[in-house]
Structure formats: C-alpha cells, structure tokens
Nucleic acid binder design. Sequence first.
DNA 1: GGATTTCCTAACGCCTTCTTAACACCGTTC
DNA 2: GAACGGTGTTAAGAAGGCGTTAGGAAATCC
Lengths: 231, 231
Amino acid sequence: MTGSGALILLVEDEPQMRRFLRVSLEGSGYRYLEAGTGQEGLALAVQHRPEAILLDLGLPDMDGLEVVSRLREWSRIPVIVISARGQETDKVDALDAGADDYLTKPFGTRELLARVRVALRHGGLEAAQEPVFVLDRWRVDLAKRQVLMDGKEVHLTPLEYSLFTTLIRHAGKVVTHRQLLKEVWGGAAGAQPLYLRVYMTQLRHKLEAEPSRPKYLQTEPGVGYRLRMED
Amino acid sequence: MTGSGALILLVEDEPQMRRFLRVSLEGSGYRYLEAGTGQEGLALAVQHRPEAILLDLGLPDMDGLEVVSRLREWSRIPVIVISARGQETDKVDALDAGADDYLTKPFGTRELLARVRVALRHGGLEAAQEPVFVLDRWRVDLAKRQVLMDGKEVHLTPLEYSLFTTLIRHAGKVVTHRQLLKEVWGGAAGAQPLYLRVYMTQLRHKLEAEPSRPKYLQTEPGVGYRLRMED
DNA sequence: GGATTTCCTAACGCCTTCTTAACACCGTTC
DNA sequence: GAACGGTGTTAAGAAGGCGTTAGGAAATCC
C-alpha cells in the first residue's frame, strides 16, 4: 500500500521544510526529486515525469499559481499544493488553477502521506501501462505473470518462470551462473550449477522450436546463459 | 467552468447543514440529490450515478468509512468527505478507505465549491466504466452485489463474494496468496493459506461447470490464483 | 432463544514441483 | 584416439502444496 517507489517531485525553497518532506517521503519508500525554484521544478517535471508533485506556493522566482498552470499546459500529473497561506481565496485560486489538493502549513506527516496516496491513486489510473516483453513468438506479461507463445499460454513452474524472467531482465547480456543461482534460488547456499542445466533444458523444451538447437536461450560456455535479442 | 448541471449526491443527516449545502450547490448550477442515511446514499448512488458525492461521516445508520468502501467495490465516483472530526487519524482513515478529499467543518462555501470542481475534473477523465463484470456464463453486478450464472442468481457467502470480486478486480493477473489473504480477510493476522484452498473449492463448485477441472478459477501452484479471461 | 447460515479447522490423499542421480554428448588437450 | 571438463537429457524419488470432505464453533437471522 505504501507505494512501491513512486517518484515524487518536491518544489520547495525552505531548507527546513525540504528536510522534513524528504524524510517523510523516503521513509515511506518513495523515490524523491527536489527543486528550489519554479523554473527548476518545471524542468524536472518535463525530464523525469514524476507521478506526483508537492508544490510550495511561496517560491523565489515565480508565483506558484503560474507553475501549476504552466504544468497543466501539457500534463495532468497530480499536484498537491503546500502553503502557509490559509486564506480561502488562496485555496480557491490554486485549485482552480489546476491543483488537485491544498494543504495548509502546519500539517501532519500522516495526513500528507495519505493525500499523496490519493494523488497516486488518481494518476495511476491513466498511466497503467503494463510491462510486456515481446520477442518473436513470445509475449511475456510480467504484471499478469503470463507467458504466451503464438498467443497460446505456456505454463511455467515458479522456478522456470523466475529463471526466464531473470534472463529477460538482462535481455541480450550474459548472466553468469553465480548471478542466476543467486537471483532465482535466492542467495541461500545449496544451489548447484546443475540446477541451471536441468531448468534450461526444460525451458528450451517449453519455449524453443528446436530445443536441441536453441535460437534464443543460449549457452555461454564457462560463463553463463544469455537471452538473445536479434531476430 | 462552473459545471453545467453536474449531478451531486449529498449524504448528510443534519438538516441545517443540508440546507446550507443545497443552497451552495444549486446556486452554482449543479443538479442535486440528497440522502439522510448511508443505506439511502448507496442506493441513490447506484440508481442515479452522480458525478460526485459529498459525504458526512456522522451518519445515523452506518459508519461513513463503510459507506466509502462499499461504494468503492463498484465505483470510482469522487467522494468528498465532510466531517466535524478534524483529527489526523480520521482524515487518514477516510482517505485510505477510498475518499478523494476531506473537509473539516466549519468550512467556507467557496472552498467547498472549488474542491467540488476538482472532483468533477477527476471524474470526467475516467471513462464511466460499467460496474458489471461479464465473462462467459457469468454476470457479476458489483453495485447490486449479485452474481448471475446463465441468468440465474448464484448465492455466495460474504467471504466467497469478497474472494471472487478480488479476483475479478485483478482479472487476468495472478493474485498471490498473501495478497488475497490481505484483501479478503483484511490485513489482520491469523489468516491461513488453508482458507484459500477451502473457499476456492467452494467457489469452483458454485461457479465452474467442472469444479475439479476449473476453466476460469485457476491455480498458479506455489504463487496464488488467477481468474482466466481468455475464452 | 432456537434454527440456519456461515466460518474455521483438521485430516487425508493426490498431484505438481523440486531435487538428485546417472548417463550421453561435445570439444579440447595431450 | 583416449581422457577430461563442461554441458544436455532423462527419469525417479522426495517434499511440499493443493483439493476435498466433514464436523464443530461462531455468527446471524427470524
């Protein structure tokens, strides 16, 4: 529930508040990006496409409202405004400029984090792009944990799937025996290089057209294995 | 910009607050619907599909948080909670239950209206998805909490229903044992993987043509379960 | 307060998956 | 060409996960 490393952009010039927010966000497992001016904030938003933005209205270079409307020209990234000004007019103006929420200082960490979760919930709906790996006849949907071959489902056991996706994560590169054993069988001892040969054989039989002459699941003698990407 | 007659549902039992809100909303050109209890509110939401909901937490018949989570079983209609309780815990709980905003009484009319505009902006983005899930012989009406098979109603116990709809919400994806236990039995400890096996068996007997050879309610050995979507 | 439904729990047998071993194959080296 | 290290292949036993049933506890309904 605590967001798996969503990227948050913080636009704030006061060092003290910056530190407070940094600790709060990092403590909840979010990735973190910060800007001290509106210009810098807009630039970082363009470059990194954060999943939410915390914006202080009192910036040195430009009005916070302008930051919001400039951002809204091209993006719907959720913006939570943070401000010392608690007047109703300020809130209305910020919200109408395109902000999604308005929090008046001082505020509690837990409320802030709850409102960040709401913002991520909103943003997540649009950008729900699933990581899908496609190669030749294969289609691997990592979100669904599903492997299709020519559109038909191929059943892989947990170890087979883990081995296959590990090769996919390092697609094209050689993955050493040691590394595969560590990532698939999990650091613990007892994992033998023999396992790799057994499971590579099984994978080839399930996924390769000619298991004895693999086109993609290739052996790198003395080093490890590799998922070939060409063709 | 002031919304051309969007339909707002107000769930509130205090007559005074009702009058205040009615005047505010109608004055801004919104159409208007009101309920005095949680039950009535949920029923009106199902019937009229309002574009936003203003919800008071202090209702006579049921907890406001339950209203939100019941609503979230089938709908993403924006919910703005209005409450006299200003404690941080109250806010966090409501927002995490699925509310989109939290306003503490007393509040200003203009801020309320600004936050309503934000809510309508959010709601407008998403395509109004039907709260009915259809697959092969099944038809699940998430708003009515009703499961039909070949047009005939199938009775599911609360746990069976919760398990089934959890799989539906992640349709096509594998849902891990851990995740299912958390979502169905609620984070609290004590939930054992054994439960899943028992209730999956029951679900298959009620919903599958060949319970011993399930077509849709599939096991992913060592990982979890999945509602298959193909065919 | 009794009846009914729903939930939890234990037991048992089956089936998938993992591990392990044995052997065949290939290229290289001496 | 025989020996050797590394790899591919197959199969069988072991371990653990899963499906299924049933009975009693708990909650709910009337």
